[in-house]
């Protein structure tokens, strides 16, 4: 062993304060998801028009779409917590993909129906701008709290972890949106939702990459 390595080990050992072990990732994900669920439930009960939602929820298609969105959110958050640890498989990143596909297919089907009904006249921004603001507005505070928790693991691949967390947060925001959305998803909507989700994922991952670069330069 070289003398330098030897000295480094001595220094590290001398600086070894007791540390608090992280709790299991599944438990940490569950705690975060539970608090978010509680917050969103209160917001939905207070502000959403549940009567309209009940009518719409009668359709099997919306149920599939809702399930796809919610499951994508939950699974992506779990995957992010797993990926933040050094010894977990990278395959965790695949976890939310099937439900993501389900979500895209279900809303794609809505769009197609909307196209059949309205044709090209359906291409209006209209309410979609509000959806966009809603997804971004809900995502930002959720993303901040999630990233703070994920960073406690000092992930070795922070950008991947942040992108996964961003997907989870955006999916949860899109799920909550359905309660404030008095109509089926149009193709304009789908584009807007996809753009909002992409922006959230890219922003969270980009911020994390910038932070990583800063840390690297500081070293």
């Amino acid at each position: 062993m070289s003398g330098e390595t030897e000295r480094l080990i001595g220094r590290l050992a001398a600086a070894a304060e007791p540390v608090r072990r992280l709790r299991p990732p599944l438990l940490r994900a569950a705690l975060w998801l539970t608090s978010v669920a509680a917050l969103l439930s209160v917001a939905i009960l207070l502000f959403a028009d549940l009567h309209v939602f009940a009518v719409r929820a009668a359709s099997r298609k919306l149920d599939i779409e809702l399930a796809g969105t919610l499951l994508t959110g939950i699974l992506a958050v779990i995957a992010a917590f797993e990926l933040s640890l050094p010894d977990r498989s990278r395959a965790w990143a695949l976890l939310p993909l099937p439900t993501l596909a389900l979500w895209i297919l279900a809303s794609g089907y809505s769009c197609w129906r909307h196209w059949l009904a309205y044709g090209p006249d359906g291409w209006v921004i209209g309410e979609s701008a509000n959806c966009f603001r809603f997804i971004i507005g809900v995502s930002v505070p959720l993303a901040v709290s999630l990233i703070v928790l994920l960073r406690r693991a000092r992930p070795l691949a922070p950008v991947r972890v942040a992108a996964m967390g961003g997907l989870g947060v955006a999916a949860i925001a899109a799920f909550a949106l359905q309660f404030f959305h008095p109509f089926d998803v149009t193709f304009m909507d789908l584009g807007v939702h996809a753009a909002a989700v992409t922006i959230v994922v890219a922003a969270v991952a980009g911020a994390e990459r910038a932070a990583e670069r800063r840390r690297e330069r500081a070293r």
């Binding site: 390595t5 480094l8 540390v19 992280l22 070795l156």
Partner: peptide, 12 residues
């Protein structure tokens, strides 16, 4: 070694 030191709380 430095990284191990920094992330030692993540070991289960």
């Amino acid at each position: 070694l430095l990284t191990i030191h920094r992330v030692r709380h993540t070991y289960d």
